[in-house]
């Protein structure tokens, strides 16, 4: 049974196909309004989530399907000691497809290995969150009309940010991209990500601690939050925290067609004054996530022979 746990589970051709379907969904929503009639998506969220859960549920409703869910999966069967494997098997009896979020890394992989319906990883701890990357890719495609020949800046916490690792992996498959990695020393991109996704493919990249200096060359700026708890000492955090807050002043030297992305939730790393700038794409990104989840649900249900 085909499931999607990590963005690497999808080939470049499949990413392109998903984007094509998502574009078609945006252009012709009525065409898709009943394609999933009587099909059921189970959303199993073992930890709190607002956006991702609502996005999956909205996606299934817009395809004409139904959603079955539990108010808080973490306090139901799991609290009685049921394993992820058993939960996946049981839920497979009720639903045609499962979207699962779990605090433990690898939980979706375990669920997918036992479920008899497709499983979509909606986030497994700090490990993978492939549908966020799909949202990021569609946003870039819609803003730039391409996924290659772009200079993409990643700013903030590049060490622990799973969305950053995943997007770098996806964009590294398209020709002509360059990466600018903007972070404090403490939060630099891990060497294995750099080696696997950037160096081994000969992709040009630069590392800097200065967002303003990097700004003029960027076509895309992917912002992430620098969290206090990631620093070894408070002094370093206080020294650096404001450097990675995006403000209208810092955008003065940016290209007029820059696209600013952020996986959200935002705390204070993008000033609200930036929200009205036409280059701010992070709320469009949320909507795009829904379209890509619709495209992915369709693809997996078709491959499973359910549609």
């Amino acid at each position: 049974m085909r499931s999607v746990i990590d963005i690497v589970d999808l080939s470049t051709e499949e990413l392109d196909d998903l984007i094509k379907v998502a574009r078609d969904i945006i252009a012709n929503p009525d065409k898709y309004a009943h394609v999933c009639d009587r099909k059921k998506l189970a959303t199993l969220f073992f930890e709190p989530s607002t956006r991702t859960r609502l996005s999956f549920e909205a996606a299934m409703y817009e395809l004409g399907g139904h959603v079955i869910s539990v108010p808080d999966a973490g306090s139901s069967s799991a609290s009685k000691g049921e394993s992820v494997s058993d939960t996946a098997r049981v839920v497979s009896c009720y639903a045609d497809i499962i979207a699962m979020r779990h605090p433990k890394e690898g939980a979706a992989f375990v669920a997918a290995s036992k479920a008899t319906v497709p499983v979509i990883n909606a986030g497994d701890g700090g490990h993978c969150h492939p549908t966020q990357t799909l949202a990021d890719l569609l946003t870039i495609e819609l803003e730039k009309n391409r996924l290659g020949n772009l200079t993409v800046g990643f700013c903030g916490d590049l060490k622990f940010g799973r969305t950053v690792h995943s997007l770098i992996n996806a964009l590294s498959r398209y020709e002509g991209n360059k990466f600018v990695l903007i972070s404090p020393e403490e939060l630099k991109l891990p060497s294995y990500v750099k080696k696997d996704a950037i160096k081994s493919k000969g992709i040009p990249y630069e590392q800097t601690t200065n967002l303003e200096e990097a700004m003029p060359k960027l076509d895309i700026l992917y912002m992430t939050r620098v969290q206090r708890e990631r620093f070894f000492n408070e002094e370093d955090y206080l020294r650096l925290k404001d450097s990675y807050i995006l403000t209208p002043e810092k955008l003065r030297k940016a290209k007029p067609d820059l696209a600013i992305l952020h996986p959200l939730p935002r705390v204070n790393e993008i000033s609200v004054a930036v929200d009205d700038d036409p280059r701010a794409c992070y709320f469009k990104q949320v909507e795009n996530g829904k379209y890509m989840r619709m495209a992915l649900i369709l693809k997996l249900l078709k491959e499973a022979g359910t549609l």
């Binding site: 394993s83 992820v84 494997s85 779990h102 605090p103 433990k104 890394e105 690898g106 939980a107 992989f109 375990v110 497994d124 701890g125 700090g126």
Partner: peptide
């Protein structure tokens, strides 16, 4: 934070990701 830390019955599976440097990574 790995699922194998809480679900004891799961086999511990590792895959070779870098033969030259003998790097194995947890399959989960």
């Amino acid at each position: 934070r790995c699922i194998t830390s809480t679900e004891q019955e799961l086999p511990h599976i590792f895959k070779l990701t870098d033969r030259e440097n003998k790097v194995y990574r947890c399959a989960y």
